[in-house]
C-alpha cells in the first residue's frame, strides 16, 4: 500500500518519532549507495548515512514538498558527502575499497542480454570510470544504477537539468574515447 509521505511527515512532526523508521527502511540503502560511491569508505559512509537521517529529521519541518522526499533526502546526502570530502583530503580516501565492492557482484542479477555483452569492453569501461571526476561518477551512478530522473539529479546536485543532460552526454563520449584509446594502444 502506498504511504502518503506528507502525512507521515506531519505525524512525525507531531511526535511519532518511531514512524521515521519507514523512511530509513525505504531509502537507507539508496542513501548509503550514494555516499559510499562518493567517499569510498563503507564504515564512514554508514556513519554519514546516519548523520544524513538525523539532519533530515531536524529539517523535516522545512520540507515543503517542492521535490519528492526521496530527491530532497538525496540532496542532503550529496551535500553531506561533499562536505565530508572537503574536510577529508583525497589522500585519506581508501581506494582499495573498490576491490572489496567488486567481490560482492552478484552475476545472477544480470539478465541474459547483459551476459551477452562483451566482457572485455565492460572491464575497459570499469577501468575508465576510475578516471571520471566525483561529480561525473555521481551523475552516471544515479542515472544508470539508481535510475534517477535527470531533473532529480539536477536537484540533488543543485545544477540545471540541461547541465546534467550535457554532462551525461559528455561522460559517455569521454568513456568512449578512453576505451578507443586503450584499444588503439593494445593493437600497437
Amino acid at each position: 500500500m502506498e504511504v502518503n509521505e506528507q502525512k507521515l511527515i506531519q505525524s512525525i512532526l507531531h511526535g511519532n518519532t518511531e514512524r521515521y523508521r519507514y523512511f530509513m527502511q525505504k531509502y537507507g540503502t539508496q542513501v548509503l549507495a550514494l555516499i559510499v560511491r562518493m567517499v569510498k569508505d563503507r564504515q564512514d559512509a554508514e556513519e554519514l548515512t546516519q548523520d544524513v537521517f538525523v539532519k533530515v529529521f531536524n529539517a523535516l519541518s522545512d520540507f515543503r514538498g517542492e521535490a519528492s522526499f526521496r530527491t530532497w533526502l538525496m540532496r542532503i546526502a550529496y551535500n553531506t558527502a561533499q562536505s565530508y570530502l572537503r574536510k577529508h583530503k583525497p589522500g585519506i580516501i581508501k581506494l582499495k575499497d573498490d576491490e572489496q565492492f567488486s567481490e560482492s557482484v552478484n552475476d545472477k542479477d544480470l539478465d541474459d542480454e547483459e551476459k551477452e555483452l562483451d566482457e572485455q569492453r565492460i572491464m575497459q569501461l570499469y577501468s575508465a570510470i576510475d578516471y571520471l571526476s566525483l561529480d561525473e561518477k555521481t551523475i552516471i551512478t544515479q542515472y544508470y544504477l539508481e535510475e534517477v530522473l535527470l531533473k532529480d539529479i539536477a536537484f540533488i546536485m543543485d545544477i540545471e537539468p540541461g547541465t546534467v543532460y550535457t554532462r551525461l552526454h559528455r561522460i559517455k563520449k569521454k568513456l568512449h574515447n578512453m576505451i578507443k584509446r586503450t584499444e588503439d594502444e593494445q593493437r600497437r
Partner: peptide, 27 residues
C-alpha cells in the same frame, strides 16, 4: 548504456548496511 550500467554494477554494487541496528541508533 547497458555496458556502462554493467561496468558500474561491477564497480559500485548496491551496498548493504553492515551495522544492522543503524536505524535504532538514528531513532
Amino acid at each position: 548504456d547497458k555496458e556502462i550500467r554493467k561496468a558500474l554494477n561491477i564497480k559500485y554494487p548496491t551496498p548493504q548496511f553492515q551495522q544492522k541496528d543503524w536505524q535504532s541508533v538514528v531513532i
